[in-house]
Amino acid sequence: MTVTRPSDLDGALAGLAEGGALARAGGTDLTACVAEGVLPGGPVVDLTGVAGMSGTDRRDDGSVRVGALTTVTELAEGPLLAGSYPALARTARGLATPQVRGTATLGGNLLQRNRCWYLRNPAFDCHQSGGSSCPARTGDHLYGVVVDQGPCVAPHPSSLAAALAAYDASIEVAGRGSSRSVPVAELYDGTDPTRDHVLDPAEVVVSVALPAPVPGERGAYLRATGRSRAEWPLVEVVVRLACEDRGSGPVASAAVAVGGVARTPLRLPGVEDALAGSVPGGGLSPAVVAALEGLADLCSPLPGTRYKVALLSSTVRAGLLRALGAEEG
């Protein structure tokens, strides 16, 4: 396995144009995927030396550009993000382990492969590994989706994708001879069972563009797990509340995104709409409670994921209460 270390984007894209080449950033997912046979070993294009893919800067229009090589720890602790995009920083703080957060990158997190125990077991073939079936759908899918979008039943693993969906962020993607901006929601296609994102292997995520911050935003991140830490979420929720009076007044607008439930992160517009007017420190309004109950209609559970119907609603509930500063005792 050869490793090249281009210093600029053109070099990286040229390297990736070779068949079977693998782009590598932090390498935490890639290393495990190659070891587990999820990905075939191939020439590696190491992106860590590529200029222009690091750092966080604010642009004139108030938006913020975050380089794809930014580590999860930097997302969690960087003062600019923690102050202006609290839901993103909290999400970064809540995922994986300290060691992985210190190495894994924003771009890699968005493009990582799913955690299905069939995909990661060499004894099985599936849509993702060139097969024509989903052994998890007919087998043991305890951690599978509850919103069934297509043949594959593995939830999208990227917590940051859920957070970025809540921010309506867009992804700056470079390919050979072209670059484009993709809304984060369009980075994933839940009906395509063969891959976990829609980018071409020869494309690179260069950066993420966050719209200008909302003053006084209240943010929360929460995941439902069995253990207290270091566990993939059964269901996770990212909550952003734009409140009047610099955060102390009623909710003017809200964004709520969930992960662990579908092949893609999902926004919950019904809940978002119902949140308008909610007051920090107060409980959930009847409209919000009704919207939470309505989440069941969104669900199309598998036999083994029926528990996630209730858990989706309760995780969102807990996330909203946390964002409102009104956690139940």
């Binding site: 590598r24 390498g27 290393t31 495990a32 060691q99 210190g102």
Partner: peptide
Amino acid sequence: PTVSCLLPADR
């Protein structure tokens, strides 16, 4: 602190 099992040696 880094988990060396997920860190490629060339890094």
